[in-house]
């Protein structure tokens, strides 16, 4: 983590009341996760103990402790999506990527994360790929999305 950059992102919210969550979101947006090294910076900026900052980070599911893969795939596993077979979809994707929910592929291409409802429950099963929403996702659609993302990162590499 670039400390100077982290400090700059934190300072952006210095005057915001109840600033810890906006700061954490800013750090995660910048680096993809919240680095351990950010904890003392946050504690100092907000006049909190490190333990308090830790407590907040660990409370919320959103904040990652490690850098994610190049692509983040969040698949909904809540009830409406269950009724349309999301559990089978998740199994399929886990197999295709050889990871379990919450893990990153060995090549660093994908992080697979669970999410509980994306508000797209009339078009279940639903997922978010790098923030882009997809609905009525079949195994075939998921394969195509994954392969497309793979090709993209192949070009970038």
């Amino acid at each position: 983590m670039d400390i100077a950059l982290a400090k700059k992102r934190i300072e952006g919210f210095q005057d915001t009341p109840g600033a810890l969550l906006p700061m954490l979101h800013a750090l995660q947006e910048e680096f993809g996760y919240v680095d351990e090294a950010a904890v003392p910076l946050l504690a100092e900026a907000l006049n909190l103990s490190r333990a308090e900052v830790h407590g907040v980070i660990s409370f919320y599911h959103d904040f990652r402790h490690h850098a994610p893969g190049r692509h983040v795939l969040k698949i909904c596993r809540a009830e409406a999506c269950q009724s349309m077979g999301c559990n089978r979809l998740i199994e399929h994707v886990e197999k295709k990527l050889s990871v379990k929910m919450g893990e990153t592929t060995a090549d660093g291409n994908f992080t697979l994360e669970p999410v509980y409802c994306l508000g797209n429950c009339a078009l279940s099963p639903a997922l978010l790929l790098d923030g882009q929403p997809y609905g009525k996702v079949t195994a075939g659609v998921a394969d195509a999305l994954i392969e497309n993302a793979q090709r993209q990162s192949g070009r970038q590499a």
Partner: peptide, 25 residues
Amino acid sequence: RLGAGAYICGEETSLLESLEGKRGQ
């Protein structure tokens, strides 16, 4: 303000804690 993936933060007092920058208890 943006939440952070905690269902319990929909409960009003937990939401207020979260808005104040704390654990959503």
